[in-house]
């Protein structure tokens, strides 16, 4: 897939007959070196399906996340989870770590915010013996640590950037692309949890966690008790899925009485469907070489 040039061609089943000749005509007018790099959206989608079959996703045991990501964190890809403070971002990271270490696999947490409480992680179900905890001082150290962890073969590397602003800035995009390439090379799932978008085009999927709504219990004569928080995860970007899909996420405190139901926020109104791109019925005639700018 590396180096393939995606085309804005409609891949609907009805347009298959129209698309294939269009790609064929385009390939015919391109130089031979570029011909193999041109792929239609249909071919890209097929390649993605084959890749997904080869690397099954890593379940996170967070129903909302697994549903949005079609089974879990995709291996060999970078997934960015964006969320402000108290959005359930750190809880989601811990849940993913708990799911991975729970099945007996190792995982690494690059904790730039230095916010892990081992006792809380243990309560969340993380197998601490299988968790490598790295506490870098700045973003540069965090990126280097994550790359080393990916190179060591950890199937899940979670990079939590802590509360905003991130220590060391957003990092240059090349660094994130390098990290995504490293995840791809080692077949590892890389989960970046950040207070705002940092990874640019390197992320395969970007999910946004809304600010959580606290759920209090009690009141009146009885003392208030923090029962949990409810938030909503929304896909901002996903290669292969339309953005805008969302799912509610319920989080409960350890003290929350069993059976307590936490109402998740309602999904926002569905956005109007985007206009479908027109099929290139006719390709323009190739320009003549003469008359090019000197």
């Amino acid at each position: 897939m590396a180096g393939a040039l995606p085309l804005a061609l409609d891949t609907g089943p009805d347009d298959a007959a129209a698309t294939a000749p269009a790609v064929g005509r385009l390939r015919a007018v391109l130089p031979a070196d570029f011909r193999g790099r041109v792929q239609s959206a249909r071919e890209l989608a097929r390649a993605r399906r084959e890749e997904a079959a080869e690397h099954p996703p890593l379940p996170t045991a967070v129903p909302a996340l697994d549903r949005l990501l079609a089974g879990g964190l995709p291996r060999a890809h970078l997934v960015e989870l964006v969320g402000a403070r108290s959005s359930g971002r750190f809880s989601t990271v811990l849940a993913a770590l708990a799911a991975t270490t729970g099945v007996g696999e190792a995982a690494a947490l690059v904790d730039l915010g230095d916010g892990l409480d081992p006792a809380a992680a243990l309560a969340a179900g993380v197998d601490l013996a299988r968790l490598l905890w790295l506490r870098p001082a700045d973003l540069q150290g965090a990126l280097a640590s994550a790359e080393i962890a990916l190179g060591a073969g950890f199937p899940l590397v979670a990079l939590d950037l802590g509360p905003p602003p991130v220590r060391g800035g957003r990092g240059i995009e090349a660094a994130w692309l390098r990290l995504a390439r490293s995840a791809r090379a080692h077949g590892a799932a890389l989960l970046v949890a950040s207070p705002y978008r940092v990874s640019g085009t390197a992320a395969t999927a970007v999910l946004r966690a809304d600010r959580a709504r606290a759920v209090w219990q009690g009141g009146g004569a009885t003392p208030w008790l923090l029962g949990g928080a409810a938030t909503r995860l929304t896909i901002e970007k996903h290669r292969g899925t339309l953005p805008g899909q969302s799912a509610g996420l319920e989080l409960k405190t350890a003290e929350c009485p069993p059976g307590t139901r936490i109402q998740t926020p309602a999904a926002p109104a569905a956005a109007a469907p985007r206009p479908r791109p027109a099929v290139w019925e006719e390709l323009p005639e190739p320009r003549r070489a003469a008359g090019g700018r000197r």
């Binding site: 379940p59 996170t60 045991a61 967070v62 129903p63 359930g88 750190f90 809880s91 811990l94 849940a95 708990a98 799911a99 729970g102 099945v103 007996g104 696999e105 190792a106 915010g113 230095d114 916010g115 892990l116 409480d117 809380a120 992680a121 309560a123 969340a124 179900g125 013996a129 299988r130 490598l132 802590g162 509360p163 923090l226 949990g228 928080a229 996420l249 319920e250 989080l251 409960k252 405190t253 350890a254």
Partner: peptide, 27 residues
């Protein structure tokens, strides 16, 4: 020191998460 135990001989099914609201410690 990080010395993970050997993985289980057979793959376990992932358990449904507890959905616990975690605390980010301020140090």
């Amino acid at each position: 020191p990080y010395a993970p135990p050997p993985p289980p001989e057979t793959r376990r099914e992932p358990r449904t998460g507890r959905g616990l609201l975690a605390v980010r410690v301020l140090r």
